[in-house]
Structures are given as C-alpha cells and as structure tokens.
Amino acid sequence: TFLRDITEWGWDAAPPRKVLFRDDIPKLPQVLPRYLPIDADRRLTAALTEHPDNELAALALRLQRACGLRIGELLDLELDCVHELDGNGAWLKVPLGKLATERMVPLDPETLEVIDRVTQIRSHGRPLPHPRYRRPAQFLFTYLGRRLTQQGVRRELDHATEVAGLGHVTSHQLRHTYATALVNAGVSLQALMALLGHQSAEMSLRYGRLFDHTVRTEYERALDLAKQNTTAPAAGDTGGRTQLPLTAITGGRDWKDAPLLKSRMAGGFCLRAPAQGACSYANICEHCPSYRSEPSSLPILAAQRVDADALARDAEQRGWIDEAERHQKLIARLDALIADTETQTG
C-alpha cells in the first residue's frame, strides 16, 4: 500500500514498475469455526447449571450460548435489553459490538428464565459509565458494584469445563456452537446473518461449509454403490444382486443388539452403518400428522414401542445421544397414537 501511495504522490523514490503481484501475497488460512460437539455442549451446559462456582458468570455463559453473543456484546448488555413485541414474543437487543451494528435475537422461555435469574442476583447500584457512549448505564451483569469482567467469565468457563471433563474451551466457541446448531436445523443464510450480526454472507457461509449437504449426498451415493459390490449373486440369478444375509450383517446376533443404527418400523426394521448417519426418513410416517391407526394395528404399534424402547437404551449405552432421542420421540408418538386409537374405539 505504501509503494502504491508514493507512486500516486509522485515521489522520486517510487519504483518505476510494479514490484508486488497477487501471487506474492501469501493466502490466509481458511479455518473452520470450532464448535462444541453435541455431547460436550450438553455436559458443559449441565455443569454451568448444576455446579456453578460463580452463578452470575455461569448465567452469562449460558446466555451467550443461547443467543450466540460475542463476549463484548454479552458484557455490554443493559438491564432493559429484553423487549416484548406484540404477537412476536420476547427479543434480546444486542448492543453495538465488533462490527458497530445492533441486532435483535429472539428469546425462548428457558433463556428468559436465565435473564430473570440474572436480574435477581445481580448487584443493584449506581449507573456505570458505558465504554462506548460514556453515558451512565445500568448493565445487566454487575457484581459487587462493578461490571462482570471477561476474566471472571473465563474463570467460570474453566471451572465448568473441568467439572464436565472437557479440554480447553473458549467463550467464543459457544457462539460457534450456537451458529452450528442453527445450520444443522436448516436456518436460511439471511436469518443466520441477522442472528449473528454478520455484514457479509461470506462470514456466515463458513458455518455452512461445516455441513455441506452436497458432500453428504455424494458420500451416501458412493457408499450405496460400494455396498452393492459386496452383495452375492442370488441362486438362479444370472446378473442381478441380492442383499447380504442378515446374519452376515449382524454377526449372528439379534438385530436389536447389532452395533448399527437401527430403526423399528411397523412392518419391519432398518439397519444402517454408523458411518452413514441416521436416516432422515426413518419413522417418517409415524410422525406425519396425516397418519392414522385402527384397532387392528394396536398389537403392531405396541410391539413397535417395545422395540423402540430397547433401541433407545441400546443407543444410550453406545453414546449415540441423537439416536436415543430419536427413538424417544418415536415412543412418545406411538403412545399418542395408541391412546387416540383406544379412545376412539372405547
């Protein structure tokens, strides 16, 4: 930049030709956001909730995780940061932060309870000067007449990670975890930008690259082709292929005990390798609002519920928390279907 400037200024020391080219500038590393895996996120939240060392700092970290705030935005929150909008619920007004922009983040009842608890235990005192505006302000996180510091939040996070049995975690990873959860839930790019306070789509697209659906689709397609190559010719079949025998897949054990992702359907079951991930269509019919059952289906639904309960316990023992939750949701849906059918038939 300096060399270009002295050329524009007409200095005698300006080089007679261009000396720096695009390829001369080293490319910056494109590092993906470091988010917490689901199990680690749950353990950390449990430690902050059940075993806090500094309750105010623990609540601050829970609020940061629930709203995806930067640490500076979190500590600059003022006492009147919650706004109730008619017909649109409660929203958190995030103050000017790193990019000098304000934004509104929707709040759920659980996060509102966190903020209510903060207002109960915070120190009440005189207004303190705002670091950006220099005007007196009542901050949300005040302790013994002073504002909660980043060092205080850091100490509480270290304590919680030790209780949860985790390695080193930074407070900014809570923001990454919030964004990653939104991407997994299918939030749009525009909504993600608004919730995170990003000014460019490129900033938000970093999270999209974590879970590229195209990569996943191509992977599953290739895996299906690889499975086809491992099947054996059927008796009397000259060119077609058939599925491997069930004993070859389960190792001779009962299918409910196999180390695979398992789904129980009314008319059978599904087995998937852990590398394939859970099937997005598993038990889709049972959860459909148009699904109906009749008295003759009650024994089938009851048997399906028994197997789903066994699969949930199996998934928990293997540490597959998402799988266990999926089976629990199916159990709850089956209970509702069975109850509705019994009520209709008296």
Rank of each mutant, 00 (worst) to 15 (best):
G125N: 08
G125V: 15
F139C: 04
P131V: 07
H124A: 14
A137M: 01
R146L: 11
H124G: 14
P129T: 13
F141Q: 02
S123F: 10
Q150N: 14
I121V: 15
L148H: 02
G125R: 06
L148D: 01
R146W: 09
Q151A: 11
A137L: 00
H130C: 03
A137G: 00
F139I: 09
L144T: 07
R135M: 10
G145R: 03
G145H: 06
Y133L: 08
G125D: 11
Q120L: 14
R146Y: 12
P127T: 10
P136F: 11
T149Q: 06
Q120D: 14
G145T: 12
P129Y: 07
Q151C: 05
P127F: 04
Y133T: 13
R132W: 02
Q120H: 10
L144M: 10
L144F: 05
T149A: 10
R135P: 00
Q150D: 14
I121L: 14
Y133H: 07
R147A: 05
Q151I: 11
P129V: 13
R135H: 05
F141W: 04
Q138D: 08
P127S: 07
R122M: 15
Q120F: 12
F141I: 09
L140F: 06
G125T: 14
R134M: 03
S123E: 09
A137W: 01
R146T: 15
S123D: 14
R132K: 08
L148A: 05
Q120E: 15
P131R: 04
R147Q: 11
Q120N: 10
Y133G: 01
P136R: 10
L140P: 00
P131Q: 05
H130Y: 03
R134T: 09
G145M: 07
H124R: 13
P129A: 14
F139A: 01
A137V: 01
R122F: 13
R147T: 12
H130R: 02
Q138F: 04
R132V: 12
